[in-house]
Amino acid sequence: MLAPDDCASLTDIRQAIDGLDREVLTILGKRMQYVLAASRFKSDAKSIPAPERVASMLVDRRRWAEENGLDGDFAESLFQQIISWYIARQVDYWRAQRGLQ
C-alpha cells in the first residue's frame, strides 16, 4: 500500500482506503472471536455488560484517538456503539451455548 504522499491519483487513494477498511473489518472479526471466547468466563448473562470495564475502555479509546490526532468525542461515540453491539452478540452467544435461547 502506498503512503498517502506517494499516491499519484484518486484511484491510488481509494485503493488504499479500501485496503485499510478491509483491515479494520478483519480486526473487528478477530475482536468478535475474543468477545465470544470471553463468554466462557461469565457466570451469567448479567455479568456480560461489565459497565466498569466499559467506562475504563472508553477513557482509553478516547486517549488513544487523541494521541493519533483524532477527535476524542468521535472515538468515544464510535466505541460506545461497537461495544454495545458486541455485548449484545455476547449475550446471545452465552445464552445459545447454554440452550437458553
Rank of each mutant, 00 (worst) to 15 (best):
M1L: 07
L2W: 09
L2A: 06
A3R: 03
P4D: 02
D5R: 04
D5S: 10
D6G: 04
C7H: 02
C7F: 02
A8L: 06
A8G: 12
S9T: 03
S9E: 01
S9M: 02
L10F: 05
L10E: 11
L10K: 06
T11V: 10
T11N: 12
R14G: 01
R14D: 02
A16K: 11
A16G: 05
D18A: 15
G19I: 02
G19P: 04
L20P: 01
D21Q: 05
D21F: 02
R22A: 10
R22Q: 11
R22P: 05
R22G: 07
V24H: 11
V24Y: 13
V24M: 13
L25C: 04
L25D: 07
L25A: 05
T26V: 02
T26G: 12
I27M: 13
L28W: 05
K30C: 06
K30N: 09
K30V: 00
R31F: 05
R31E: 12
M32A: 04
M32T: 00
M32Y: 01
Q33F: 07
Q33S: 13
Q33G: 09
Y34C: 09
Y34F: 07
V35P: 03
V35I: 12
A37E: 10
A38M: 06
A38D: 05
S39L: 04
S39I: 01
S39V: 04
R40M: 03
R40F: 06
S43P: 12
D44K: 06
D44V: 00
A45I: 04
K46Q: 12
S47G: 11
S47V: 00
S47K: 14
P49S: 11
P49H: 07
A50R: 14
A50W: 07
A50F: 09
P51K: 15
E52N: 14
R53D: 01
V54Q: 15
V54M: 14
S56L: 07
S56D: 08
M57D: 07
L58C: 11
V59W: 03
D60F: 12
D60Y: 08
D60L: 15
D60C: 08
R61M: 15
R61N: 05
R62A: 08
R63W: 08
R63G: 01
R63A: 08
W64I: 03
W64Q: 11
A65T: 00
A65P: 02
A65G: 14
A65M: 04
E66M: 10
E67L: 14
N68S: 09
L70R: 15
L70Q: 11
D71K: 02
D71F: 00
D71R: 01
D71C: 12
D73P: 01
D73Y: 06
A75R: 04
E76Q: 14
L78P: 00
F79L: 13
F79I: 05
F79Q: 06
F79K: 09
Q80Y: 04
I82V: 12
I82A: 09
I82W: 09
I83D: 15
I83W: 13
S84R: 13
W85P: 01
W85R: 09
W85H: 12
Y86Q: 13
Y86I: 00
A88G: 14
R89S: 08
Q90V: 00
Q90D: 11
V91T: 09
D92V: 00
D92N: 11
D92C: 03
Y93C: 06
Y93V: 00
W94C: 11
W94T: 02
W94H: 08
W94S: 12
R95Q: 13
R95P: 03
A96S: 13
A96G: 03
Q97E: 15
R98M: 06
G99M: 03
Q101D: 08
